[in-house]
Simulated assay, not measured.
Amino acid sequence: MTTSAITIQEITALPQMLAQHHLIQQLNPDMTFARYQELLEQMLPHNYRMVGAFAGETCVGLSGYWVSTKLYSGKYLEIDNFVVDETYRAKGIGKILSDWLHQEAKRHNCQTLMLDAYATNSAAHRFYFREGFIIKGYHFLKSV
């Protein structure tokens, strides 16, 4: 497979998004289908969007994203749940998705791209550094 055989398509309908559960599970192994559907139904009214990298009819890479504004960053595109199928990694698909998201940010007149990466995911860190991302700060969580 060559990267020229990859097409990028926005995934706009909930059923299409739900069909990608298997990819989301590679990033979040404990994410049940029911929980995935519940979260998407909460996120979609708040302008959550999704894009996929397809080899033919098969989605082999995926990223959600949001466009919004924060005081420290200005208008931004936030990458959410960026994942490439395990069997397709190291084939340039992540780069293709990242480039598409960068162009989408430009299209929306964003000043920045941002994302969260799990602290333990060193392979993702290397990829994001190669793509020109820097560490700006920490993302803190507290359960309620």
Rank of each mutant, 00 (worst) to 15 (best):
M1K: 02
M1R: 03
T3L: 15
A5M: 14
I6E: 00
I11C: 01
I11D: 01
L14P: 04
L14C: 07
P15F: 13
M17R: 09
A19K: 11
Q20S: 15
Q20R: 13
Q20W: 00
I24M: 15
Q25R: 15
Q26G: 06
N28H: 05
P29Q: 07
D30V: 15
T32E: 02
T32W: 05
F33V: 09
R35V: 00
R35Q: 10
Y36S: 11
Q37T: 04
L39K: 14
L40Y: 10
E41F: 02
M43R: 14
M43L: 14
M43I: 15
L44D: 03
L44T: 05
L44P: 01
P45E: 08
N47G: 09
M50S: 07
V51K: 06
V51S: 09
A53D: 11
F54G: 03
G56D: 07
G56S: 05
E57G: 08
E57V: 12
E57S: 13
E57M: 08
C59P: 02
L62E: 02
S63P: 05
Y65G: 08
Y65K: 05
Y65M: 08
T69H: 14
T69N: 10
K70D: 02
Y72S: 11
Y72V: 11
S73G: 12
G74W: 06
K75Y: 01
L77R: 04
L77F: 01
I79V: 14
F82D: 01
V84D: 12
V84Y: 07
V84C: 08
Y88P: 02
Y88N: 05
R89F: 06
R89P: 04
R89M: 03
A90F: 03
G94L: 13
G94Y: 02
K95P: 00
K95A: 09
K95W: 02
K95Y: 00
I96M: 03
D99M: 13
L101V: 12
L101M: 11
H102W: 07
Q103T: 02
Q103H: 12
E104G: 04
E104Q: 15
C110Q: 04
C110A: 03
M114C: 14
L115G: 00
A119E: 09
A119C: 09
A119L: 11
T120C: 07
N121S: 06
A123L: 10
A123F: 06
A124W: 06
H125Q: 10
H125F: 02
H125N: 04
Y128K: 03
F129D: 07
F129W: 06
I134A: 02
I135Y: 08
I135V: 14
K136C: 07
G137C: 11
F140N: 05
L141Y: 14
K142Q: 10
V144G: 02
V144S: 01
V144D: 01
